[in-house]
């Protein structure tokens, strides 16, 4: 649907962030953030509340521009080529963005139209994505009638309707019970493996970083560690990620 010269987009990483800084007034929220999300990578962005995760998501999704630095989606700069970048991106925001009074299916059809998909083209994809999150039967119900966990699953299905190659989730498990959390986590990791999606999963829950996950530790707007879980453990000399995280954020240099 968009011009995609081979090589330009396909060779580049789903997401690369370089030298990203941002602030509100005199308060600096992000400083010199660098990282990439590779194809098929499940990348966990770990940070406490206020670490700058939500600001980072707002910048990547082009809600507003950063003061400096570059964000590229498959090599497409979010400022220079926003349409190309946004078309390949699926997003689950921290707060629910569903229309409660509309049915599950209508919410997804609305999203499909925002990506220029006709109802005929979107219908089979919507059916497939809903079935995959176990909500195929509920498509005609209003979102208001669903539980919190089910709503999250609808949002995940929605984010995938336009077949993005990069999936962003901002604290997707907040407020969910253990079972829903587990389901969501498993489903997204499955997507990484099966479809080669690059995933950026922001959380403050360390146990959501599975053994094969890439880890990015964000603290007070700066990236303190970035790499496979083992590398982060080795960097800190700790045996658990929890201990590694605590050591990183407690380090004198981390108070930046």
């Amino acid at each position: 649907m968009l011009d995609q010269p081979a090589g330009v987009t396909e060779a580049a990483a789903p997401l690369s962030v370089a030298g990203l800084s941002h602030g509100f007034g005199t308060r600096r929220v992000l400083q010199g953030v660098d990282f990439t999300v590779a194809r098929g990578a499940f990348c966990v962005l770990l940070g406490l509340n206020g670490a700058g995760k939500t600001t980072l998501f707002a910048l990547i999704t082009r809600l507003y521009h950063s003061r400096s630095g570059r964000i590229a989606v498959f090599g497409r700069d979010i400022r220079a080529e926003p349409a190309a970048a946004l078309a390949r991106m699926g997003v689950v925001f921290q707060q629910s963005t569903l229309d409660l009074d509309l049915t599950v299916a209508e919410n997804l059809f609305y999203h499909a139209s925002l990506h220029g998909l006709s109802r005929a083209a979107a219908a089979p994809r919507i059916a497939a994505e809903l079935a995959r999150v176990g909500l195929g039967e509920r498509r005609g119900e209003r979102v208001r009638q669903l539980s919190g966990g089910q709503r999250r699953r609808v949002e995940l299905a929605r984010a995938l309707v336009h077949e993005p190659a990069l999936l962003l989730l901002d604290e997707p498990t907040v407020g969910l019970d253990i079972e829903s959390r587990q389901f969501l986590l498993e489903h997204v990791r499955h997507l990484c493996r099966e479809r080669g999606l690059g995933v950026l999963w922001a959380t403050h829950l360390i146990d959501e970083a599975a053994a094969d996950a890439e880890i990015i530790v964000l603290h007070r707007g700066a990236v303190l560690a970035h790499g496979p879980r083992e590398a982060v453990l080795a960097q800190t000399g700790e045996s658990t990620l929890k201990a590694a995280f605590d050591r990183l954020v407690a380090a004198p240099g981390a108070s930046g």
Binding site: D101, S113, S118
Partner: peptide, 25 residues
């Protein structure tokens, strides 16, 4: 994006607004 996609997008946005209006009695 083609002109057809623009009109699909506009149609989707109008449809949503109409549905919301009808559903919020």
């Amino acid at each position: 994006m083609t002109a057809a996609q623009y009109s699909l997008c506009l149609g989707g946005i109008v449809r949503r607004e109409a549905l919301r209006w009808l559903n919020q009695r």
